[in-house]
Simulated scan of single mutants.
Amino acid sequence: MPHTVKGVVSRAKGEPAELVDIVVPDPGPGEAVVDITACGVCHTDLHYREGGISDDFPFLLGHEAAGVVSAVGEGVINVAVGDTVVLNWRAVCGQCRACKRGEPHYCFNTYNAAQPMTLTDGTPLSPTLGIGAFCEKTLVHSGQCTKVDAAADPAVAGLLGCGVMAGIGAAVNTAPVRRGQTAAIIGCGGVGCAAVAGSVLAGARRVIAVDLDDKKLGWATDLGATHTINSAGMDEGAVVAAIQSLTGGFGADVVIDAVGRPETWRQAFYARDLAGTVVLVGVPTPGMELQLPLLDVFGRGGALKSSWYGDCLPERDFPMLIDLHLQGRLNLDTFVSETIALDQVEEAFAKMHRGEVLRSVVVL
């Protein structure tokens, strides 16, 4: 029978999120109900609350989550009741043109649950990124569940569901950073710090972190950055020169823009070595435009890439990264600044906006 549980809902653009009762139906074919154990507070949830992604209110917020499968629907074979899982928002279909050409990380037809979760009056909820995990239970497509080692702290494991995977994947999958290369990361919030960790994991000999905030640069250092640049008060040219000065005057082999603004992307473009790689993983807003001399694009060569969800394949990457963490080879604990309760999500949004935390994590 359906379950009535507590969940964090955004009813209208810009209004504070509310902790209310929601109804989670029994799983249908291909679906699973997951008891949420932890869920990170991500900028994407705030973008949904502010109406920056769509206007399909009310939203059930939360998506960066770990939990335990408590029920499965007909035909589900990839997970079973009792499995510890990390939720993902790119459950690949296996049938679209990207999947058929052997690039399932680009799947153009990802799955979500077919049934809606609702308010108690029957109003359908829009789950953020097809997940909706600031709640005690959520309904997802079974393909959105990736089984991982239950020994991992849920507060850490859940972060792989979005921001940490996006950053690590930008370095390891999209670029990819190779052993002995130099990498620079512009913007050291959650995604940027994860790109630092990914560059270290990939074997970069020099990892340069760039940000306006010394606190964020400290986080990047904790995750393995070898050099930091505080760009407060610096123009674009000065940032480029600072990166070049740390790379023999040439520029970095890979520069990752984890901010997603025209000025930071231009910094990344000019701060890379000739034939180097730029990776955009920060998400621009719809009105942003970029102006760049086309001759410079031609003359500098290399690759200009965008990273979608770290170009990850969840069933491959999540278990691997959890195993590396449990072996002490990947420091994920640094990302958890604090653990909070469901009724503290709105306060966590404010802390995140002020840059006070790397990640607040709801623990149930």
Rank of each mutant, 00 (worst) to 15 (best):
P154L: 03
C99Y: 12
G161M: 06
T118Y: 03
D153I: 00
T123Q: 13
C145G: 02
R90L: 14
A155K: 06
G94I: 10
R101A: 11
A151W: 03
L160D: 04
M117Q: 11
Q115C: 00
A98D: 14
R178F: 13
G132A: 14
H105W: 14
T146L: 01
R101C: 06
T146S: 11
Q95R: 15
A157W: 01
L160Y: 03
I131M: 13
T128G: 11
A152Y: 00
L125A: 11
G132Y: 11
V140D: 06
C99G: 08
G143C: 04
T174Y: 06
M165E: 12
N112R: 11
C99D: 10
K137S: 07
T118S: 11
C96I: 10
R101T: 14
C99H: 10
T138S: 11
T110Y: 10
A114C: 00
N109W: 11
L87V: 09
K100W: 05
A150L: 02
G122S: 11
A175I: 09
R179N: 13
G161E: 05
K137M: 13
C93T: 07
V177P: 01
A150W: 04
A170Y: 06
T123Y: 09
V92K: 01
A91K: 01
G94C: 10
G130V: 12
H105P: 00
Q144I: 05
G158L: 01
S142Q: 12
A91H: 02
V148E: 00
I168L: 13
G169V: 05
D149S: 09
K147S: 08
G94H: 08
A152D: 00
C93D: 11
K147L: 09
G102E: 10
A91L: 04
C162W: 03
P127E: 14
A151S: 13
A155F: 05
C145N: 04
N112G: 04
I131H: 12
A175Q: 04
L119H: 06
T128D: 12
C93Q: 07
T174K: 09
A114N: 02
A151L: 02
P127M: 12
L160W: 01
G163C: 08
G163S: 12
V148Q: 01
L159G: 07
G132D: 12
N173C: 08
E136Y: 09
V148M: 04
D149F: 06
N173Y: 08
A91R: 01
F134S: 05
S142G: 08
T120N: 01
K100S: 13
L119R: 01
W89D: 07
P104R: 03
D149P: 00
Q95Y: 12
A155L: 03
A166S: 15
T128H: 08
T138C: 14
Q115D: 08
D121S: 07
P116N: 06
G163Y: 08
M165P: 00
G169K: 04
Q95K: 15
G132V: 13
A98G: 01
L159H: 05
Y111H: 15
A155T: 09
L159I: 08
V92W: 06
D149C: 02
I168C: 05
C107Y: 10
D149G: 02
C96S: 10
N173Q: 09
T120Y: 02
P176N: 06
A166D: 10
D121M: 07
C162N: 03
T120E: 14
C145E: 03
T138H: 07
N112L: 00
E103I: 05
